[in-house]
């Protein structure tokens, strides 16, 4: 993605360099051509696998290499997707889904970051709770979904709660480890300046932990989408998970695939967004 957006300035600077180096007049244009070639190559590499999948998806059902009833050609799926979009149905399902994800994810950030900072800062608490946190993190959220439904019913609460649950552990564990793995030398050096515990935490521990915390937030963001769909397959009346499930029951196979494509696009988008955010907050860490 980034190589694409960086292209224009790189191309624009090339002629300026040609003026600066008159001794080799032939090489800059060739370098420019090579650069364009390299960028097109990079773009092609990124596209080629997805394009191949699209072609296979289109051609195999048409040649009846696979049953077109169960896997309709891509163009039919896209047509169904367009219909869903135009009718507004897709928009409704998507916003219902995103609202649940965002609520669970947001609550998890609000709760798990402060809690993680607290646990990480007090070593005995961390040692005490870490095994428990590991147990919870490694218990798949979906395995606990029936428990949530049992206690909280089939409504919104249980759906948001399960997403909240699934998002909490990666954030919590990363925050704890972020606080606990701060370079001891930095703490020693800050202590030598006479910094008290509060300012030490605010000026050294917290900024040092931010990149690790963001890794947790990114993982939780992906989790929020993954868990969402499963939660929506159980007793929901709207949402992409409901759409996929409902379409399958009613044998509206192209609609089902349209739902799947949407959810995978949203997943990619959310992840990309979080990766970019994470990078912004941890530029200083990359070069170490």
């Amino acid at each position: 993605m980034s190589s694409l957006t960086e292209t224009p300035p790189a191309v624009r600077t090339a002629p300026a360099r040609r003026i600066a180096v008159p001794a080799v007049p032939a090489s800059p244009p060739r370098g420019l051509g090579r650069r364009i070639g390299r960028i097109t190559g990079a773009v092609l590499t990124r596209i080629v696998a997805i394009a191949a999948l699209a072609v296979i998806w289109e051609v195999f059902p048409r040649l009846e290499l696979v049953n077109p009833v169960f896997l309709p050609p891509l163009t039919e799926v896209l047509a169904a997707w367009k219909d869903l979009l135009v009718s507004g149905e897709l928009g409704n399902h998507t916003s219902a889904s995103l609202a649940r994800s965002a609520a669970g994810f947001g609550l998890a950030i609000a709760a798990a970051v402060p809690l993680g900072l607290l646990i990480g800062w007090y070593t005995p608490v961390a040692n005490l709770l870490n095994p428990l946190l590991e147990v919870f993190r490694n218990t798949a959220a979906l395995a606990i979904l029936p428990v949530f439904v049992l206690i909280l019913g089939l409504g919104e609460t249980s759906k948001v709660a399960i997403i909240f649950y699934g998002c909490t552990w990666p954030i919590l564990l990363n925050t704890v480890s972020g606080v606990r793995t701060v370079d001891p030398l930095l703490i020693k050096s800050a202590r030598s300046l006479g910094l008290g515990p509060v300012r030490l935490f605010q000026k050294v521990v917290l900024p040092a932990a931010v990149p690790t915390i963001f890794t947790g937030i990114r993982l939780a963001g992906s989790a929020s989408i993954l868990i969402l769909i499963a939660a929506e397959m159980v007793g929901a009346k709207a949402g992409l998970g409901y759409l996929i499930n409902y379409a399958q029951y009613n044998f509206a196979v192209p609609d089902m695939y349209a739902g799947i494509i949407t959810i995978s696009a949203i997943g990619l988008l959310v992840n990309q967004l979080l990766v970019v955010t994470e990078r912004r907050f941890s530029t200083w860490r990359t070069a170490n």
Binding site: L186, K188, S189, P207, W284, R285
Partner: peptide, 10 residues
């Protein structure tokens, strides 16, 4: 002054 500088990387 420490051997490993102890600068805040951010």
């Amino acid at each position: 002054v420490f051997q490993q500088y102890a600068l805040l990387p951010w």
